[in-house]
Amino acid sequence: MTPDLEDLYREIILDHYRNPRNTGELKSPPAIRTVGFNPLCGDEITLYLDIEGDILKDVKIDIRGCSISQSSASMMSEAIKGKHIAEIQQFIQSFKSMMSVHKAQLAGDETSTQGKLADNDPGEVDDNLDDDGIVEQTLEDSKLGELTALRGVVQFPVRIKCATLAWNTLIQGLEEVG
């Protein structure tokens, strides 16, 4: 079956695209400034993280990208702002697994996969299928909130990189803090 465009361009995605949240810059330093690229389409994101102790006090994003990369970045910023780093790491994990379910979904199967973010290879799939996927997925859904609107992206494998651009940049930024 060919995937439906409506699964991709959900209203909430278009809303975040039209009115992106937390855009702009933070003075760096003290903020951590990380630049990410999507080599496929040339999209660029600059992420500013203002971390105090173990809390992300503020986040700002400067992005030139498509509706998917921009809305994903915008929703991410809302989800992580003001949160503990440990909680943010959990978000990253949940988002990662949501973005790696596409093999299962393409096979018409509701199980989820766990694994790393499909970042470089658009066709990348994770073979590590988890039989308890269904339970896991609903748990994650409650955590992810409106970010689950991006679930439809997995049906469009080349667009996964768009959705994960901000997140990969976030991972990079957090690694810099150590």
Partner: peptide, 12 residues
């Protein structure tokens, strides 16, 4: 409209 979005919709 971003080129990626254009191409995606045209593909459909």
């Amino acid at each position: 409209v971003h080129p990626h979005d254009l191409a995606q919709i045209l593909d459909s």
